[in-house]
């Protein structure tokens, strides 16, 4: 059995974010990138499944700029057997829908029986791509999985739902997104770091998977981007309750213009 893990390279959340000179993008020059933490859980679950003798191969798949290779190497050092890398710098103009189209197209030729992904990427928090991929591949999915058990051709999983857990059994092929708590992702060991450089990274272009940049363009224009204001007004309002409410409304309306 072949397991695919969807992986995204994201800025380290400990980074200090700055808005670029165009006021429409995040400045990326000094950002450190890591594998999205929920994807680490996805990869760990895949590796454990293979180690338990229930799968033959684990590969990671990602789409992104050339620099994403660094994160791919980390995944290979953790224990993935190989990687599929859809490389196209125009990918930066895509969004969840486009990314899902790219991944699904690349996955079709691989035909994995089982797909894991993090429940969301920690940069845009969209929680859309894996589910869209499942829909495009026409396979069932379960999100926010906290426990996973593979039996003959079916998977028994637990999902977090409001106020409880939801247990479900699904036939493979299927896609699952992982939540914290499902496992503890391992650190790459030094011997595996050294093996990683010999593992295959299969590079694909959009053309290879039958797509063009126009097909996956986001269709969204960002007008402006700004960081939340950090300074406080530090205004103490005087008077009785009615007076203070009146003053507060006037501040919100006239000074802050939020009402």
């Amino acid at each position: 059995m072949k397991i695919a893990v969807l992986m995204k390279r994201v800025p380290d959340t400990a980074s200090v974010f700055k808005i670029g000179a165009d006021n429409k993008s995040v400045e990326t020059d000094n950002l450190k990138y890591v594998m999205s933490p929920y994807d680490e859980h996805a990869l760990e679950e895949a590796i454990q499944t293979k180690e338990a003798g229930k799968a033959d191969e684990v590969f990671v798949i990602t789409v992104g700029p050339d620099a994403a290779k660094e994160t791919i190497r980390t995944a290979l050092a953790m224990g993935a057997d190989r990687a599929v890398f859809v490389k196209d710098d125009a990918a930066s103009d895509t969004n969840c829908k486009g990314t899902a189209m790219i991944l699904a197209a690349a996955l079709k030729t691989e035909a994995p029986e089982l797909i894991f992904a993090g429940k969301q990427a920690v940069d845009d928090d969209a929680s859309q791509v894996p589910e869209r991929v499942a829909e495009l591949l026409d396979i069932p999915h379960a999100s926010v999985v906290t426990s996973f058990e593979l039996n003959d051709g079916t998977a028994l999983v637990e999902r977090e739902i409001e106020g409880g857990h939801y247990k479900m059994e699904m036939a493979l092929p299927a896609l699952f997104t992982t939540q914290k708590g499902i496992n503890t992702p391992r650190y790459p060991t030094l011997p595996n770091i050294m093996k990683a450089k010999k593992k295959e990274i299969k590079e694909l272009t959009f053309a290879d998977i039958g797509l063009s940049a126009a097909d996956v363009a986001s269709g969204v224009t960002i007008e402006e981007m700004a960081l939340p204001r950090q300074d406080r007004l530090n205004k103490i309002l005087d008077g009785d309750n009615d007076e203070r409410v009146a003053q507060l409304l006037s501040v919100l309306r006239e000074e802050e213009k939020v009402l």
Binding site: E70, T74, Y187, I193
Partner: peptide, 15 residues
């Protein structure tokens, strides 16, 4: 090298 960079990152993560 890419491998040496990874050594730095991974050691730091454990530490």
């Amino acid at each position: 090298s890419e491998e040496q960079e990874m050594i730095r990152t991974q050691v730091r993560q454990i530490a």
